[in-house]
Amino acid sequence: MAEKKSRKSSSQKAQQSPKKGFPADLWLKCPKCGETLFKKELGRNFGICEHCNYRFKLSSNERIEMLADEATFKEIDADLTPVDPLAFVDRLKYTDRLKQVQEKTGLTEAIRTGIARMGGHDVALGVMDFQFIGGSMGSVVGEKVTRLFETAMEKKLPVLIVSTSGGARMQEGILSLMQMAKTNAVIAAHDEMGLLFLSICMDPTMAGVMASYASIGDLNIAEPGALMGFAGPRVIKETIRQELPEGFQRTEFMLERGFVDLICERAELREKLILLLDLFLKPKGK
């Protein structure tokens, strides 16, 4: 399940006044080192602080721009929106929570899916967005992932999914859990057709998403330092009542344990993915 990260101190830092004279929408402060960063430059650096290597979470739009050939992403199922099957109310009604986050992010759900070109290859591309209820998977995320694979099967395309998620969405209860079985069913079918699935994990990819499609790519690729695992660190700490080792559940740890095929920096991700597509889809050379 999604774990809330407490970044109180960081967000407080980020709210301190900037260097005077710069319009606020042009800069931001690194929550880790406190340096002032220009958004444009930060964008050119793939959302990584040039001073301390702090990794900002990117939006799904930014990631699509980073990965796909320019202006080739054709979104599918963009108007598929979540409903409230459980009549779920906690501090907020789920329907109100959805409205708020939709207005704030301009997104309809925690994943965008579509067909794009990458280095000339047609690919089915899904990109999750952590801003939308922690990238959690409910019925719509499961449905969109499933339809993406189904579209890929029709068109005989590879699937690339960029994951970032706290896990299954609590507000849709058991239906969220069932999306794990739904997505893995269509992945089994896509796999049977001999088609390629590359799973790309960004920070964090946890719980219900890690325990379904994110773990079972033909290749699992991850950015450095991403938290990847089943149970969240806080839950583990509370269960075993001891401190967790340094780097626990991070990409490098996962590679050492044999669950990640390769680690790839954001700046090199597009090229590396295109190379892999070339190797698998053009086995006799270009």
Partner: peptide
Amino acid sequence: GAYPGIEAEERGQAEAIAKNIKEMHN
């Protein structure tokens, strides 16, 4: 639930569950 512990994560709790879910479909 699946056990939330250090060793469970080290040995790939998420992968084990994900793989079972996929392979039971086969």
